[in-house]
């Protein structure tokens, strides 16, 4: 799977590095002074690197836990996010990472203990208050778990701190960390979902919607709480039926009481990012949709966004009896809330 591993000199002897090296015995290992020497430099090609991404092992020195942008997260919580990894094994055509980074190589920060120290410090600093941590904005939280074991590492911390909420955002069907762990009531496994017909076009290299729902069903059966993330909402012919079909399908398989929260995200790109992504994939149908460029952002017209959100909320409210938390959503590229 990975045939080249770049490794920062500072983590060459890190036990996690050694473990990863031992799992990729035939991979070429190349020493680099700092991961910035090969990641995200301008002379790289995201699209071509996606054909055969390398793994970069690095140490993170700061910024382990960051406050989420205003308007994002749970309204009655202090909200933070963390990224143990940059980039993703999937290649979703709407993903902002393809516009954010010049490199498609995966960066993994192996000093997990520094993340846990900072997470615990943040929890301690907010003692008596609700605090939530979000993972999965600069990567998929679970997709590379079989290499990173990060979720397996971090879950015990949240077991020890039951008042702190953890959200893992994913499209992966990697369930091992949750299968071997006790159920944590304060952990939400949040699945990104779009209708199957659209997913087949845009969710490249991801597990199908069917397989994601199957994975969610397994987690729900074990007692894990799930998040549904209709993010981004994608417009097109017959979108109402497509989204209704998806929502019906989910609730025919997943008990409503397993759902922790539901959120909707709009398709939005900063103008320069859209230009970069469109230039990479000029023949992508998604970019021929009714997109509007206003105020430095490229997005659907607000009436399309609002109509789609209202419709989906309505279908969900019609489908299930109990009240559901609807989170707002934000655009990680602009750090702005999407739905006011």
């Amino acid at each position: 799977m990975v045939d080249t591993i770049y490794c920062e000199e500072s983590v060459t002897d890190h036990p996690r590095t050694r473990e990863i090296f031992s799992r990729f015995k035939s991979a070429r290992k190349i020493s680099v002074p700092r991961y910035g020497a090969i990641f995200n430099k301008r002379d790289q090609n995201f699209k071509l690197q996606k054909r055969n991404p390398a793994l970069i092992l690095a140490r993170k020195y700061n910024g382990f836990v960051l406050p989420v942008p205003d308007g994002f997260g749970l309204s009655d919580h202090n909200n933070f996010y963390f990224s143990h990894m940059y980039n993703c094994i999937y290649d979703c055509r709407y993903c902002f990472l393809q516009g954010l980074y010049s490199s498609a190589n995966y960066v993994l920060f192996v000093n997990y203990e520094d993340f846990s120290t900072q997470i615990e410090a943040t929890i301690a600093a907010h003692k008596g208050k609700n605090v939530a941590f979000f993972s999965g904005y600069d990567c998929d939280s679970l997709a590379l778990e079989n290499i990173t074991n990060f979720t397996s590492f971090i879950l015990p911390l949240f077991k020890k701190n039951p008042t702190a909420l953890l959200e893992l955002r994913t499209k992966s069907i990697q369930l091992k960390p949750m299968i071997i762990s006790d159920v944590l009531k304060n952990c939400v496994i949040a699945y990104s979902l779009i209708p199957d017909a659209i997913s087949k076009h845009l969710d490249i290299k991801t597990p199908s919607i069917d397989r994601r729902i199957h994975a969610m069903k397994k987690l729900a059966a074990k007692g894990w709480k799930l998040g549904l993330r209709f993010d981004p909402l994608i417009h097109g012919e017959d979108w109402r039926n497509l989204y209704k079909g998806l929502i019906d399908r989910i609730f025919s398989e997943i008990p409503a009481d397993s759902i922790h929260s539901i959120s909707f995200g709009a398709l939005r790109f900063p103008k320069a990012m859209f230009k970069k992504i469109h230039s990479m994939y000029p023949k992508e149908l998604l970019f021929s949709g009714p997109l509007l460029s206003t105020g430095g952002l490229v997005s659907y017209k607000s009436d399309i966004e609002n109509e789609m959100i209202s419709f989906c909320r309505h279908v969900i409210n019609e489908t299930i009896a109990q009240p559901i938390i609807f989170n707002c959503s934000f655009d990680p590229s602009t750090k702005k809330e999407i739905i006011p």
Binding site: P195, A197, I198, K200, H201, I234, H235, G236, E237, D238, W239, L242, L285, L286, S288, G289, P290, L291, L292, K301
Partner: peptide, 10 residues
């Protein structure tokens, strides 16, 4: 034309 284009995803 593009503003009114609805992509047929099927």
């Amino acid at each position: 034309d593009l503003d009114n284009y609805k992509i047929d995803w099927k």
